[in-house]
Design a protein around this nucleic acid. Structure first.
Ligand code: FES
Ligand code: FES
Lengths: 146, 146
DNA sequence: AGCATACCCGAGTAAAACTGTCAATTAATT
DNA sequence: AATTAATTGACAGTTTTACTCGGGTATGCT
């Protein structure tokens, strides 16, 4: 029941982009050094974030990435979806709780309910929420472990 | 964000035990054939379930496993804990939300909140709930995919 | 006692998933 | 033209998962 580090990196990177970008394109190089994530790996992530219509790319010198929408409209579950981590807890079930077995297996309701809670919680948090928190924390301590 | 099949098997096996055991020891062989799970694998699971004080073993001929407590007192999260799957979504955090970074990382609150929801939901369901559902379903259809 | 049943346990393994790197390319700016 | 920086696909190392195998140990029955 772990979230992949890929998804964790994606969230962190998005907060960093939202916090330090401010409308202007921010190069991955900046995020990479600030968050101590390998540039090559970030590239991989941002391709997916772009395809998920969460960021837009600006090529050439002075280029980088910009949020595709205001931070208030970007939910955490969207970020995780983009990097291709499923939020459904079992592989036999799709996003809407439909299963290969209908709903006949004994634990169907457990996994379906669990998936719904996870989705509900992660969709209740926006990038703007995280960015605000990060700005407050930055005043006191600087720590970038996770 | 997937639950391991190990945990899924554990839940299914426990429902099967609770449903067909009725006080008497039920041999793993029975569960294995009924649920189409390999006996060797089930043995591995039940050692852990026993150490988690969820079942008791009865050795010798006519032996098997019995619930260690009434089904109403066995929660689904306990079953999953026993087979050693963590319900905390990130590896840097323990059960109580304590982190290597205090609570300084930007997404700390996200993962902590997520872990709490998962725990809360899975601890709200008991083996008795699942057994009752299974008994109802058995009347209409028989399907054991999951 | 001897035998069959059924739990007990550690080691080992093949496949899959995860994490991350590399090299080569395209596009825009100066 | 030179430089910056995103774009892309392929690929390798490591870890985790999902099992199997082989031999033990306790118990009850005849
Ligand atoms: S087939 Fe697995 S829960 Fe329905
Ligand atoms: S160290 Fe990872 S969330 Fe705190």
């Amino acid at each position: 029941m772990r979230i992949s580090t890929k998804a964790q990196y994606a969230v962190r990177a998005m907060v960093s982009l939202s916090l330090h970008g401010e409308g202007k394109p921010l190069a991955l190089h900046d995020i990479a050094t600030r968050e101590a994530i390998s540039l090559a790996y970030l590239e991989q992530l941002f391709v997916k974030l772009r395809r998920g219509r969460i960021v837009k790319s600006v090529r050439g010198p002075g280029g980088g990435y910009v949020l595709a929408r205001p931070a208030v409209e970007i939910r955490v579950d969207e970020i995780i979806d983009s990097v291709e981590e499923s939020l459904v807890p079992v592989s036999c079930m799709d996003d809407k709780g439909r299963c290969v077995c209908g709903d006949q297996c004994v634990s169907h309701a457990v996994w379906q309910g669990l998936g719904e809670r996870v989705r509900q919680f992660l969709s209740s948090i926006t990038l703007a929420d995280l960015t605000r928190d990060a700005a407050n924390k930055a005043r006191t301590v600087l720590s970038d472990e996770c």
